[in-house]
Nucleic acid binder design. Structure first.
Length: 210
DNA sequence: AATGCATCCAACCGCTCCGAT
DNA sequence: TATCGGAGCGGTTGGATGCAT
């Protein structure tokens, strides 16, 4: 049952942190052959990694156009806006942030934004999370929902409960639209009202405090 | 100075989707 | 049309690091 029981191959497959040598092999191989079928790429390059692992390493870390470092306020706003619209569609959101990876955005959201959402949410709802489980327990209603569409609902739920109004931020930070050339899909403004809210406060706090 | 706690980030896992056969 | 394999996505985990006590 356990797929790890195929020991003959298990010993062949490396896991865990990538070494510099592995990085170099992967970079050189892709430089020469381009990205391709990842499983065969991993074999051909002589890496004892799964294709999946190679792909992840390349996309999230080694790719030359990956931007590293702090998420700018403009990017933060954009992330919040797009998340309000699409929920946890990290790859979709990442497409609007050149050089940022879905993984990075996801991590950013979990560590920075959700913390604020949670903090803002708790005093009002008072029905969840009074325990201080750190980390993933923000998903107390998201975790058991299949991620197909529930993520969007979940996000919308968070925002609506906070009276989030993205268009409002839009007004104050117009230039973020220019930072990413990607046009935003038309917003159905039915869910958002023009109310300054806690979100505005914590977003400001976020930008100032970090 | 040592210990414990909180946070961040890279990587892995499982699932779903999509294209090829 | 059904099946299979690969790619992609979102969720989760674990190690490293920084900070507070």
């Amino acid at each position: 049952m356990d797929k790890r029981s195929c020991n003959s191959q298990e010993s062949e497959v490396r896991k865990g942190p990538w070494t510099m040598e592995e990085d170099l092999i992967l970079i050189n191989y892709i430089a020469n052959h381009g990205e391709g079928v990842w499983n065969s790429l991993a074999r051909s390059a002589g890496l004892k990694r799964t294709g999946k692992s190679c792909r992840l390493r390349w996309l999230n870390y080694l790719r030359p156009d990956v931007r590293r470092g702090n998420i700018t306020p403009e990017e933060q706003l954009l992330i919040m806006q797009l998340h309000a619209r699409w929920g946890n569609r990290w790859s979709k959101i990442a497409k609007h942030l050149p050089g940022r990876t879905d993984n990075e955005i996801k991590n950013f959201w979990r560590t920075k934004i959700q913390k604020h959402v949670k903090q803002a949410d708790t005093p009002f709802s008072g029905h969840q999370n009074n325990g201080s489980d750190h980390n993933q327990q923000y998903h107390d209603h998201g975790a058991n929902s299949s991620h197909t569409s529930a993520g969007i609902d979940e996000g919308a739920e968070h925002y609506s409960s906070l009276n989030i109004n993205i268009a409002h931020n839009d007004h104050h930070h117009n230039n973020y639209n220019n930072t990413s050339s990607a046009p935003l899909p038309p917003e159905s403004s039915t869910h958002h009202e023009s109310i300054w809210s806690i979100e505005d406060l914590w977003s400001m706090q976020l930008f100032n405090g970090d």
